[in-house]
Design a protein around this nucleic acid. Sequence first.
DNA 1: AGACGTTCTGGAAGCGCTTGCAGCCGCGGC
DNA 2: GCCGCGGCTGCAAGCGCTTCCAGAACGTCT
Lengths: 337, 337
Amino acid sequence: MAGIKEVAERAGLSIATVSRALSGRGNVSPTSRARAQAAAADLGFVPSYQASSLASGRNYNIGLVVPSVHRWYFASVVEGVSAALLDAGYDLTLYNITEGSARRQSILNDFLLRKRVDAVIAVSLALTESEIAQMLAVHRPIVGIGGPLPGASTIRIDDHGLAEAAVNHLIRLGHHRIAHLTGDSEHEQDFKVPRTRLAGYEKAMQAAGLSAQPEWIVAADFTVQGAYAAARSLLGGAAERPTAVFAASDEMAIGTILAARDFGLRIPDDLSVIGMDGHELGALFGLTTIDQDPRGQGALAVRLLLDGLDGGTDKAVLDTEYPTKFIFRSSTAVPPA
Amino acid sequence: MAGIKEVAERAGLSIATVSRALSGRGNVSPTSRARAQAAAADLGFVPSYQASSLASGRNYNIGLVVPSVHRWYFASVVEGVSAALLDAGYDLTLYNITEGSARRQSILNDFLLRKRVDAVIAVSLALTESEIAQMLAVHRPIVGIGGPLPGASTIRIDDHGLAEAAVNHLIRLGHHRIAHLTGDSEHEQDFKVPRTRLAGYEKAMQAAGLSAQPEWIVAADFTVQGAYAAARSLLGGAAERPTAVFAASDEMAIGTILAARDFGLRIPDDLSVIGMDGHELGALFGLTTIDQDPRGQGALAVRLLLDGLDGGTDKAVLDTEYPTKFIFRSSTAVPPA
DNA sequence: AGACGTTCTGGAAGCGCTTGCAGCCGCGGC
DNA sequence: GCCGCGGCTGCAAGCGCTTCCAGAACGTCT
């Protein structure tokens, strides 16, 4: 367990010089630097994280708060963030707040504020203004992904507009009876996205002069299974069956496709389905969707944060709209005659 | 940014007493404790993580190393570990080593050894003995999940025996032509599990006097898509088609089922499929499988580790076999006549 | 009443680094 | 030849806690 002191002795230098040599901060002659590095390598020296952190105020650690790690979208963000941070030499501290409200205050207090992290990335988490203010007050920049963070920087996609676009795509194909699979309000206190997409759906329907039957708007949790169950009741229901479904996520779209298949409905002949996300599995189902590249969003969040930390400027709050790609595949077509 | 000093002043106590009062270590009169707590609350005091960590040597932070965060199994472990750690007041530092070898040495050096974490949980990661020794030398206990860690504690399931059991289930149903979907060696340098399951498959086949055609053992990456593609070539191939498939994971089993459906094969009438994992989606497909509860494995790993850290005993290396549950559903049946 | 324990408290010494400051050296400019 | 300056270096003062130790206060036992 060699410390910097041992390295200094072995290198015949002072502790201060070794510190400067190894950290790259401050002036050190090439000779000294080389000696310090050699000594450090010989001893297998690894600087103590907490000591340097305490002394310098830098942590090289950022916190990532997600409501789930199972859903494709979140897993992808985690992956993007993780890779970007590893490259930058930062640690990633993960907070998976599953149950929603119960633990969140304690996480905020006990973890995030404990100066353990230099900054936090909150995914689909609706922090209140005062919570955000708390974080900013202790100089912890925040960026939000996919969730509105009043007063903090955010990265998001145009959920409303994209939902409209998805529905319009179906409308242009000739569909009139378009259903929507949205989020389950029970599981999404923090998760505003489904409501926004729902609003986009309604707007597009209305703009086209179509009536969105209440029974065509069905809520499910954001999983394949949840959507499958919801789609079964939607498609198996009496009355007029919709000819198209806009699902608020690709996982839900896949659940819908599976349910449709179970009913003997052919996609897209009998039913068109469009999703949203860019899930890898979409290709397998020929799913038409809108790719939002969550991995890239995670990487971007890291870049924004690190730029801000380096720049030192408590930079302006900026709201970035992340670009998306409409992917046309075979799950959408003209409605049955 | 109140420090412990301000709290002490406000409470009219010494720093030492406040520290003891708030941490619960050492003797403090009820009166003093209350005063300290009140003062801390008033000031919104949150102790500095690095300072207490530096002074006490405890980190309250454990590192979790996973090769992926997308695959169901790993996401589940992360979830289990995360929940258990939050309860215990520990932070979780996540290292997602995607590419395999490239970054792993640097992670070991730059991150794990930097005393940032008190312990590490490595999932399906085959650390070498010397890597493990390095960690243990700096008093960082390790527990491995689902991967052999020579010299460290591990939690694992009986992959070999369970694979045999899965295949035997098919054999008992009357199947002779049983295929196996295994891992893709390209993507699994560290991941020994598929090979073990393959060995179990071979053993069971041999024990039953069945020949495992080489073309019935097909490799794919551990995703639905990968398995789907592999299953297509397996089922679409000429020659004798297998009547049953044992897939090394539920995701692969699902891919197989989807491929079979696309070929018009009915499950289980034309093809039996058995998986392994306990994926929630399995129910939707009626998938017979073996539930290994990765979430529980993650939670157990945390418990082992924390017990060890508290106990102080550099406890014995122990190898825990985690219990599994065979789940019979509708994807397996007697072979077609 | 005196000796001895217990419980509680505060002083102060770290934990292992970073960094401000001052001193040293060697150099170019006047 | 002297001054000034810039590059290097080491000293030492922290960073904000924890914890050892010694001492104070209060009980208990004989």
